[in-house]
Simulated assay, not measured.
Amino acid sequence: MTSLISDEPVRADLSTRLKNNGGLVALAVILIFNILVTPNFLQAQTLAVNISQVATIAIVAMGMALVIATGGIDLSVGAVMALSGALAPLIFQSDFGTAYPVLGIVASLFLPLVAALACGLFNGTIVAVLKVQPIIATLILFISGRGIAQVLTNGNLQTYSNPDFSYLGTGKILGFPFQGWLALAIAIFLFWLVNRTIFGRYLLAIGGNERAAKLSGGPVRKVKIGAYVICSILSGLAGLIVVAINSASDAARNGNLMELDAIAAAVVGGALLQGGKAPIFGAILGAVIIQLVKYTLLANGVEDEVALIAKAAIILAAVYIQQARKE
């Protein structure tokens, strides 16, 4: 006997739901696997370490999501992290920072972010004004930024002991890592910026149809530059957090391959590579997935090199899902 009700619409609806919520499904699978298989996964120390790592990736990924929303990309985020992280200890350990500790800490937080802002202006100007392809424009700082950081530190590991600065990476509020609260505050602000301001409206319009945005009189150049500036500032902040966590600045390693993590997190979180969408909280979800994949592999004895292959596979899957949504 043939059923009067076809199950095809049900299957189609299920397929659509899986495509639209693929990130949440992936997160659920990873969490269940770790709870059942990975030793000590639910211990407070393990969770704190993962939150610390996630916060750093999420902060950069949210900035990357803004850049991708314009149809661009920023390969320099890791180099900006290295540069910002190299500057901070140099400032608060200088004669000025030693003589005026409070001002030294303030300067070590403020001046590296100013340097990061300058990097964003550099990237944004080359992309928006000189019309250079984003991947080429940001490749300049990708190469030179880390080199500048190593020159500033003479290529040496900078260790320090400064509890006030280290609070940025090791402090806790209500038992939750400070950088986690910071990432949440940034997410709320950027969500408001994208969804409630003229800047956000034009940001999405540029990625959707840049020519139409220009014809409508939108400040296309300013918005593009603004996206790169925000991305660089957030990258600089992430660089400071990494230094604060480790009580050391290593220009050769700080932010190494962060561009891969940030792009992967943004894309997994729903960012469209052609632009037009800036999923801020989606970028956080993507960062959680990227970090948990890395942690899961390492905690279960899989080599770090395999984690890189896994990240590439995640990006490929996310892009495939994006294409499937168009069909």
Rank of each mutant, 00 (worst) to 15 (best):
L14S: 08
L4N: 15
W181R: 03
K222W: 06
M62Y: 06
M258R: 11
V77L: 12
I289V: 02
L215D: 00
L297T: 01
A278G: 06
L103V: 00
D74V: 07
A266S: 11
L215Q: 08
F96Y: 15
T138N: 06
P112T: 12
T2G: 03
E327G: 08
L31G: 00
L66V: 12
I68C: 10
T125G: 15
D13T: 09
M62G: 10
Y320A: 15
N162A: 08
A248I: 01
A262W: 10
L24E: 11
S15P: 00
A227G: 09
N162L: 03
D304W: 07
V267S: 07
L27A: 15
V54C: 11
I136G: 00
L42R: 00
V220W: 05
D95V: 11
L152N: 04
G85Q: 04
A107I: 01
R201C: 05
G155Y: 11
P177G: 13
I73T: 13
V37T: 14
V10F: 14
F199A: 07
V49A: 15
F41Q: 08
A183G: 06
F189Y: 09
L184M: 13
V194N: 03
G180C: 11
G124W: 06
F199L: 02
V306M: 10
G169I: 09
K311Y: 05
G85S: 10
A238V: 11
V267C: 09
N156R: 14
S216L: 12
A265Y: 07
A55C: 03
V132K: 06
G120K: 04
N21Q: 14
G145V: 07
L103R: 00
D261E: 12
W192P: 00
L182A: 13
L260E: 09
G275K: 12
V106C: 05
V127T: 05
I59M: 14
A212N: 01
P134D: 02
I289N: 01
V132F: 05
G226E: 01
Q45M: 14
R253S: 15
A271W: 00
A324Y: 04
L292K: 01
A26E: 06
G217L: 01
D74R: 03
A313N: 00
L47V: 08
G124E: 01
R196A: 08
N162Q: 09
G104A: 02
G236C: 11
D74C: 07
I140V: 06
P89H: 08
N162V: 12
